[in-house]
Design a binder for these strands. Structure first.
Lengths: 138, 138
DNA sequence: GTACCTGCAAACTTTTTGCTACCGA
DNA sequence: TCGGTAGCAAAAAGTTTGCAGGTAC
C-alpha cells in the first residue's frame, strides 16, 4: 500500500520496461475492477493497437511472479488480475451474476492468522482470502 | 450429513440412472479427496472401461446442477468435485504444493453468516467458503 | 415407444509456446 | 552490442457439443 505506481515497482524490481509493459502497467494502475486477460488486452489495445494477446498473457504472468499483480480465480474459468499493492481485502463472487464484491473485516483478518497458525502455516507475507460462493438454489 | 448415498439422492431427484451414472456416483461416494474430472474418469474407467470422458464431464455437471456434487476451483485450471452432502467445511489450497487441507472452524461459520448478512446476502441454503491462498514468496 | 443418454470426434475457450525479428539498457 | 522481448501462429489443456446409435423407464 505504498504510493509507488506499478511502473515504479517494475523498475524497482529491475524489469526491462518496454512500451507494451508500460501500457499494461498503466491499464492495471487505472483499473478499479478485476479485469480478465481479454479485458486487459482490450484496454491496452485502446492505447496501443499493436499489442498482442500473447504479450498480455506473458506480462501479467511476469507481474504476478514478482508480486506486482495478484491473480484471482472466481471459478468461471478465467483468471482475473488486480494490483497486489493494496490494502488486504476479500472478494465475494456471486456465481449467479458474476458480480464481485470487495470487503474487509478485521475479525476475518484475525481469524485468518489464527487458522493459518493452527494449520502450521506462517501467514506472514502470504495471503489468505475469504472466498464466497453462492450456489444456485436454496 | 444424511446417510443417503449419492445414488439414493440421484433417484430422489428423479435422474435417469444409467450404468455410467451409477459408476460415477460410486466413485464420488468412495472419494475421500477432491478429484478432478480426469481423475474421476480414471477411477470410473477402472470399474467400466467403456465410460467416456465426455460422459464424465456431462455427469459431474448434471450432479452439480442438482446439488449432489460441489464444484471446487483452486486456481490451477481444473475443476475438482466433492460430495455436496457433507458437513460444511473449508479448504486451504497450497499454491506451492497443490495440497488441499480441509478444516472447519465454528468462528468462521459464525463470521460467514455475519458477513453475508452485512452484504445483503441471505446465506441460508447457500455456501460460503474460506479459501486459502499461499503465495510464492514472503 | 420415446425421450433421454452415450461415445466419438470435432469444436471451443483459455492459456502457453516456438520461432524470427526487434528493441532496451 | 546482445540477451531479453514482441508478434504471429500453432499447440496445449480443459471443457463442451453435434450427431448417430443405444438405453431407461
Amino acid at each position: 500500500m505504498s504510493n509507488e505506481t506499478i511502473i515504479d515497482r517494475c523498475e524497482a524490481r529491475g524489469l526491462r520496461m518496454t512500451g507494451q509493459r508500460r501500457v499494461i502497467a498503466q491499464v492495471m494502475e487505472d483499473a478499479r475492477d478485476h479485469p480478465d486477460v481479454e479485458e486487459i488486452y482490450a484496454r491496452a489495445s485502446a492505447i496501443d493497437a499493436a499489442i498482442s494477446l500473447a504479450t498480455v498473457y506473458r506480462t501479467v504472468k511476469l507481474f504476478e511472479e514478482v508480486n506486482i499483480l495478484d491473480r484471482l480465480e472466481f471459478g468461471d474459468g478465467r483468471a482475473r488480475y488486480e494490483d497486489a499493492d493494496r490494502d488486504h481485502h476479500d472478494h465475494l463472487f456471486d456465481l449467479k451474476t458474476g458480480e464481485v464484491i470487495e470487503f474487509c473485516d478485521p475479525e476475518i483478518e484475525v481469524l485468518q492468522e489464527k487458522i493459518a497458525r493452527r494449520l502450521g502455516y506462517e501467514l506472514r507475507g502470504h495471503k489468505m482470502e475469504l472466498f464466497g460462493v453462492r450456489l444456485k438454489d436454496g
